[in-house]
Amino acid sequence: MPPSSTSVRPTAIRRRVIAALGLLVLLVPALTGCLRVQTSMGISSDDRVSGQIVAATIPIDENDKGPELTVPSALAGKVRVQEYAQDGYVGSQVLFSNLTFGDVQQLATMSDQSAGSFQLSLQRAGDLVSLTGRVDLEAAPERGTDVQFTIAFPARVATTNGDRESDSIVSWKLPAGEVSTLRAEVRYSDPNTRGFAGWAGIVAGGAMAVTLLIGALAWFTRNPTPARAPSNGRLGS
């Protein structure tokens, strides 16, 4: 006797639900996009920048390598790109060191414009160093997007719109679907000024040494004490 429809229906429904849930799990990465962008950098007291950038996504298939970033020719030798694979994410990891403030601006040309745009600027005016940035994530999926930026300065941060991790470290967690701005200011002496001050000190020290030497020579070559006149008041012949 064939099973009744009432006994088959719950099992069939249960199987369909399980199958649907399995399909949903497979589709979640594709639907959300699951974007990870993590940037961390540090500035030394001589205005040199080092750090790394991770740009990765959850792959949609085994051939998906995620974002593939290319080093600008102007930064060859200072920037290295390697494959990134961690926590189920794949993409690129960018390692850089000894960049100038001008070099940092060119890092933005490596970004994947399909996920968003990233602009960053470091500028110095006397002893004041300013960081300004703009991150456009309007096209990034709101679910599964993790974009973070962290920077360490060589001195205490004066003002910022980021989260202070310590006196000299600031971070931002940037929301998807929005355009965010980065801002921070810090004061420390200009390395060029420090170099000039050191050179000026050497010159001043040298000038002082020359002055003392001239004074010493003048003292040793001064006219000897005049001979005393003889007791009879007449000069000897």
Rank of each mutant, 00 (worst) to 15 (best):
A85K: 14
V79N: 01
E68V: 09
E68I: 06
E68L: 02
E83K: 15
S92G: 07
V94S: 06
A85R: 15
A74N: 13
G91T: 02
Q93P: 01
G66Q: 02
G88R: 12
S92C: 06
G77N: 04
P67T: 11
S73W: 05
P72D: 06
K78F: 09
E68P: 00
E83V: 00
V81E: 05
E68S: 11
V94L: 08
G91W: 02
S73L: 13
L69E: 07
Y84P: 00
V71G: 02
Y89A: 10
S97L: 08
P72H: 13
Q86S: 13
L75A: 09
S97M: 12
V81R: 03
Q82L: 07
V94T: 09
Q86R: 15
V71N: 07
L69Y: 13
K78D: 08
R80D: 05
E83G: 05
V90C: 08
G66L: 03
S97A: 15
L99V: 01
L75N: 08
Q86E: 13
L75K: 11
F96M: 11
S97F: 09
L69P: 00
P67D: 05
A74M: 06
G77H: 07
Q93G: 03
E83R: 14
K78T: 07
V94Q: 04
S97T: 07
Y84I: 08
T100A: 04
L69T: 03
R80K: 15
G77A: 06
G66W: 00
V71H: 04
L95S: 14
T70W: 10
Y89N: 04
P72W: 14
G66I: 01
Q86N: 14
F96V: 02
G91H: 03
V94P: 01
P72V: 11
A85D: 12
T70G: 03
Y84A: 02
V90N: 03
L95H: 10
E83L: 05
Q82C: 04
A76F: 05
L75D: 08
